[in-house]
């Protein structure tokens, strides 16, 4: 464990807390893409299959349970909570996210470390997470006003993977010198997808203006 990875995990956890706070406090999920949240449930379930079979550390196990639990809670809120589900606007959540599953799965069948169920699904989860934010970014571009909590949620969700890139640099040059091409490339693609969001987010923060993404 190094500081970059710990900071990354904490930023990731914080983004989820910000989202749960927004939904629970405002009883509204306006501006949030249910499709991105559903993709994240699939990401966590396929990545943490070893939750009960491989013990890495207490921290690792606890965080996996927290990520699976909170992602399920968010999807539950948006689908079934009597008040929150009324605020979900499926007409603006238009991205065909199921079209992301097959290409990521096929790519994982072709490009992986070991051809085992665990490893192919773990690889699939990395490819899927790289593109899981697309429905949310598309929704933000179409929504007129982005509320602060939603903007902060997306910012921290993007920042966490950027911190993981620093963690990979640190591990490669200062620790085990092992190339991890699959997480590295997936993580870079994931972080790059946030590039324009980061630009407009920081610009709006500097100019103290409302965050607005160009359509």
């Amino acid at each position: 464990m190094n500081l970059f990875r710990l900071a990354g995990d904490m930023t990731h956890l914080f983004s989820i807390i910000v989202l749960l706070l927004k939904i629970h406090a405002t009883k509204s999920c306006s501006g949030i893409s249910l499709k991105t949240q559903e993709l994240y449930v699939i990401v966590f379930l396929t990545r943490y299959l070893d939750l009960f079979t491989r013990f890495v550390s207490l921290y690792n196990t606890v965080m996996k349970i927290v990520f699976i639990g909170t992602s399920f809670a968010i999807v539950w809120y948006m689908r079934y909570h009597k008040v929150v589900k009324q605020t979900y606007n499926k007409d603006e959540d238009t991205f065909k996210h199921y079209f992301l599953l097959l290409p990521c799965f096929v790519l994982a069948l072709l490009l992986h470390n070991e051809f085992t169920t665990m490893d192919v699904l773990w690889t699939f989860s990395l490819y899927l997470e790289a593109v899981a934010i697309l429905p949310q970014l598309v929704l933000l571009q179409q929504s007129r006003n982005i509320d602060n909590l939603t903007g902060n949620y997306v910012f921290f969700l993007g920042a966490y993977r950027g911190l993981y890139v620093l963690n990979w640099i640190y591990r490669y040059f200062l620790q085990d010198h092992r190339a991890r091409w699959i997480p590295w490339i997936s993580g870079l693609v994931q972080t790059a997808l946030y590039a324009d969001f980061f630009y407009y987010y920081i610009l709006s923060w500097k100019k103290h203006e409302k965050l607005k993404l160009p359509a």
């Binding site: 990875r5 995990d9 990731h12 990545r47 070893d50 491989r54 890495v56 550390s57 690792n60 965080m63 996996k64 990520f67 773990w122 993981y164 963690n167 620790q175 085990d176 010198h177 092992r178 997480p183």
Partner: peptide
């Protein structure tokens, strides 16, 4: 050097 455990990251 000791091989780090596989998939030790979240």
């Amino acid at each position: 050097n000791r091989q780090p455990p596989k998939h030790d990251e979240l």
